[in-house]
Design a binder for these strands. Structure first.
Length: 483
RNA sequence: GGCGCUAUCGUCUAGGGGUUAGGACGGAAGAUUCUCAAUCUUCAAACCCGGGUUCGAUUCCCGGUAGCGCUACCA
């Protein structure tokens, strides 16, 4: 039975790297009829927050990819301790009475590599037992059998055969001095207990995997299949981090900007994985059918945002924006309209369903993010147009006088027309001809008058939606502006 | 410092002992059009460096360089 897990540690919001790991696990599970497990790796009491747990669920809920089982490591501490005890009883771990953080300076700082502390590693069983009996706190360390001169090996589904000399692996901790399991122990104990068959996770764990193999074997478990994913990095090449890169790496930033979850998933799936058939636009269904571990790449992938990020162009990878536009346009018009409802109402606008549907039709090819309807189609929603430069009313190769003539003629003609595409088309073209204007020279002043900007959807359809009273009112205002 | 991993257009990637090194985004130009967008066409744009192996390497091997990761009683 194929079982995979996504195991975030709740120390911040859900970021895109984690989301991608989740997505790859999900795709793999669904592709192969396996079980998707969500496990909160919350053994670091110091750094875990409830807010982070909520934020992770919030992000996952938005993705709308379901999981089948759910666990919390903090509720499984007995299991972790049992596994630690089993390893200790085989003498493959030992007590380290060094106070926490005491050896930090020598360990990490300078040039030498810290591997173990001979004093504690070689402490006699009698002394160890005696000191433990007095209640002196200790951490439990794995006794890496370095004297065997052997190596640890495993076969990674992405990176291939991996080996590392035992002599290069330090005596890592299994239990902290407060009795809490470390990540390595808890993770392996749970993976074994939950019968995880494939561990798909970030490449930052590739080096750790040697330790994990050691734990699995010491505890008598068969290690699962590992598949490490290349990291998602910022344009500067460093690993995406919440601290360094801020909200641009948060899943909720994408949600709040008006991404469609299916587009977001599509975008992330293409970072570090390829279907190898030149397809880029991939709905979830196809992604699920196409996904395989063989398509996973080994080199880190850059999420191409710009810093400092202010506009969507800066904040999001251009391909993400493009893909979202594609997914937007692939949606049936009613479905897109439904997605737009909360965007419009959250902005404080009140529009009838029929009108919003008509607006959706006009805007769908002009937006890449849901929220762009607000900026691109503001004139559909507001009563009073925001201020604009009256100079915009002046058409190509024309002057103020021409704009005025076009608008005054429009003011005369429009009341007599039915506000439907064909009627407006005939009426306004005829008017242009009478005035000796090109169609564009007639239309632009009207467009700017009604929309408050030069770039907008086609004129007749737009007027149809804006309606006769508002159109005339805005033309009137434009004429005043020009005079 | 030690160990591990990686290296194809600006970015995401395909490919692989002999190719005009393919696609996508983005960029440029053009077509279409009442503007914009969408759409279509075209163009510019890459095999990190040095040694091998070979008739022939971007591809295989070794070395270098660079980047990233791990090196915590974080995960």
């Amino acid at each position: 039975m194929l079982r995979v897990r996504f195991a975030p540690s709740p120390t911040g919001f859900l970021h895109v790297g984690s989301a991608r790991t989740f997505i790859f696990n999900w795709l793999f599970a669904r592709r192969n009829g396996g079980t998707m497990i969500l496990r909160l790796d919350d053994t670091d009491v110091e750094r875990n927050t409830e807010a982070s747990v909520n934020s992770i669920f919030e992000g996952l809920r938005w993705l709308a990819l379901n999981w089948d089982e759910e666990y919390k490591q903090s509720e499984r501490l007995n299991l972790h301790r049992e596994v630690a005890q089993a390893i200790f009883s085989k003498d493959m771990a030992y007590r380290d009475f060094t106070p926490a953080h005491a050896g930090e300076a020598e360990k990490s700082g300078t040039q030498g590599t810290w591997l173990f502390n001979p004093d504690t590693r070689n402490m006699s069983k009698q002394e160890s037992d005696r000191r433990a009996a007095t209640g002196e706190p200790f951490a439990l360390r794995f006794r890496v059998p370095r004297e065997q001169n052997g190596e640890v090996r495993f076969n990674d589904a992405v990176y291939g055969e991996q080996t590392k000399a035992l002599a290069d692996i330090e005596d890592f901790a299994l239990l902290r001095s407060d009795g809490m399991p470390t990540y390595h122990l808890a993770s392996c104990a749970d993976d074994a207990d939950l019968r995880i068959s494939h561990i798909i996770r970030g490449q930052d764990h590739l080096s750790n995997t040697f330790k994990h193999v050691l734990i699995f074997e010491a505890a008598g478990f068969k290690p699962p299949q590992f598949a490490h994913l290349p990291l998602l990095v910022a344009p500067d090449g460093t690993k995406l981090s919440k601290r360094k890169h801020g909200p641009v790496v948060s899943v909720t930033t994408y949600r709040d900007a008006g991404f469609l979850p299916e587009a977001f998933i599509n975008f992330l799936s293409l970072l570090g994985w390829s279907p190898k058939n030149d397809r880029e636009f991939l709905p979830l269904k196809e992604l699920t059918e196409l996904f395989s571990l063989e398509g996973i790449n080994r080199a880190n992938a850059v999420v191409n945002f710009k810093e400092p990020a202010v506009t969507p162009e800066d904040t999001f990878d251009p391909k993400a924006l493009w893909l979202n536009g594609e997914h937007l346009r692939a949606l049936p018009i009613e479905a897109l309209c439904d997605r737009l409802v909360p965007v419009v109402s959250d902005a404080g606008y009140c529009v009838s369903p029929e009108k919003l549907l008509a607006i959706t039709r006009l805007l769908r090819e002009r937006i890449r993010l849901l929220n762009e309807v607000l900026a691109v189609g503001d004139f559909f929603f507001v009563d009073q147009l925001p201020p604009y430069d009256p100079g915009e009313l002046i058409p190509q190769k024309g002057d103020k006088e021409m704009a005025l003539r076009a608008l005054t003629r429009a003011r005369e003609v429009l009341p007599t027309l039915e506000f439907k595409h064909d009627s407006l088309d005939h009426g306004l073209r005829a008017a242009a001809q009478e005035l000796g204007l090109k169609a564009g020279q007639m239309f632009q002043p009207i467009r700017v008058a009604v929309c408050g900007k030069k770039n907008a959807p086609p004129l007749f359809e737009t007027l149809e939606v804006v309606g006769k009273p508002k159109t005339l009112e805005r033309i009137e205002q434009a004429i005043e502006k020009l005079q």
